[in-house]
Design a protein around this nucleic acid. Structure first.
Lengths: 189, 189, 189, 189
DNA sequence: AATGAATGAGAATTCATTCAT
DNA sequence: AATGAATGAATTCTCATTCAT
């Protein structure tokens, strides 16, 4: 297990892992992931000590990417509903644009292979998002709950929304609109 | 006639599967499930043709049990908020009382091993629950969405709630109360 | 393992075994044989102590049936070629009429599960057939070989013939005729 | 590059398979074959995708080896009986020298695991042998039959011969001689 | 560093046989 | 006697990980 040399290969492995985990779950064979990345089976273990480390890294990177997609352009000067809407739209937008990433993230989230440490790192990374959520929820029934609860609520509502959008794409606009209204009432109403 | 097939053993296998799947996911070995049920490895395949059938049956039974826990005592004569509250309380109550069942249900739900047929059976079984949800949502922003969407929303919000209750049991009451208020505003507000 | 009561059941098991062994080989499961015979899995072991005994009995019965099909109507008064032709025709006739029995017999013959004892019993049973063969071969190049060798030769030539007839049924008559001529030349020429 | 795939190991697996299949039939466990070859159980599946492929390859290689043993030194200039005798001697010689190979070949031939494709490849490979047989049979009763029929007849007669040689080795010479005479009369007489 | 052959501990099933009913 | 549920060893094949090249 020597020191890895190519950042490209690491990225290729993580991208292949996204696809394969999305499709086959966390029990996806490392050999398939390596093949998808265009590297040899053994090479994977140069970049990741073992499969668990790969899965944890993947989860972390996906979550960080999602976070990075949510904040830019945040309308700090606007009212809470606009700020909330911004976060919501970004979340829905990123998830719709990257269905495999979303599916992989979910598979990882329910698996027992994501360590507490990884979960903590993810929590830390979402500090800014949570702050935003706190502001949005400042006047609502959840104002005394931890901000991560509000974030989780948004994620839960948005994920459910996307499941239905996937089932009935024709209603996408209306479903998303209604779901945001519901979410807004939930946190701020 | 030979020994009759024992309902007790079938139940024991399903109960063991609940525990093991909750802990290890759908890749839980059938050998461990059989051992947990106190039967031989081969016996499992007398009661379930293969692992997929076991997983589908388990999912169906858990969902039916949850449904049966939700409806009794439904206050049909009361106003929507009370009726809604009834369903919510029952859902939270059952899930808190059976954390392993809830966890197993989730593992199964995100796996790709639950067939469309099983999903349809579950959907049919929740007809009454969905009717209730439709009534509750009649005046809210989700009134034009399918009732199963409202049900799914409640499940999502309640599941998120329970995750936080599990993390901070001291705040259970307050968290649950606030979450119900949020849910109520979301669907009826 | 009590004493079996019904000869019908024994026969049913052997008949089912013929079909199943013909189709699946000697590794055919006893459960399938029992099902084919319309009896319970355990019943098979009342009539046959174990699978090996079933297979040996089956082999013996098939061979005896074949023998019984070959001798009746034997034209003792005719010349050797007619007598030989009689045996040949009977063998071809029986095998064509009972392709499953023939196939089962072959599967059993090449398996390692037929004991020496069974083989000896079969050899003894073919005494009369062998005597006939000795007479037929009396003037030929095989006259100093054991008569069972001549029998085996006929079986080998006839089996090969039937394989080709099965492949090209349109040529059945001509193939069979030519093969008999070849056989006759081989043993008597 | 990693270790290259070793031709030695492939050969060792096929040789072990020959022994084990000869003794136990096609139901011989792959684990035993691997052990016999001195490789790990999993290694077998690097060289052969699955058991069926192993069995088909084995059958093909044995048949090709037999063919290669039959033709060298073919006395093209001699008369038909000498040419025929050459093929016969080579067949008997190879089969006597490699009883396990012969037994394995038979087990495979009667099993249902040899695909049509493999059978066709074998048939193609025996084109030259069949041509020889056609010439030998040109003046006999089988002259209008397909040459593969004559080949099959020779194989059948020779196999029967070897069974008897195995039973009475003291008579080997005489039995083989008489059997060839019989064969010659059959095809050319 | 990169490769992919090699390993062997499982994984899901199957099946001959036993035994409670 | 007859049944078929119960058993658990055996079977084929997979896969994370190691290591010779």
């Amino acid at each position: 297990m020597a020191r890895p040399r190519s950042e490209d290969k690491r990225t290729a492995i993580l991208e292949a892992a996204t696809k394969i985990v999305a499709m086959l779950g966390v029990s996806a064979p490392t050999a398939k992931i390596a093949k998808g990345a265009g590297v040899a089976e053994g090479t994977l273990f140069i970049y990741f000590a073992n499969k668990d480390e790969l899965l944890n890294q993947l989860y972390l990177e996906l979550k960080l990417e999602l976070r990075d997609a949510m904040m830019p352009g945040y309308p700090a000067g606007e009212g809470p509903i606009d700020r909330s809407r911004h976060v919501w739209d970004r979340y829905i937008g990123w998830s719709s644009a990257h269905p495999l990433k979303r599916r992989a993230m979910r598979q990882l989230a329910v698996s027992d292979r994501i360590t507490e440490k990884t979960k903590r790192l993810v929590g830390d990374a979402f500090g800014e998002v949570n702050d935003t959520m706190r502001e949005c929820a400042a006047g609502g029934v959840l104002r005394h709950r931890p901000p991560s609860f509000v974030s989780a609520m948004m994620t839960a509502i948005a994920d459910t929304t996307m499941d239905f959008v996937a089932r009935e794409p024709a209603q996408a606009k209306r479903t998303t609109k209604a779901a945001f209204d519901a979410f807004w009432k939930a946190v701020a109403g």
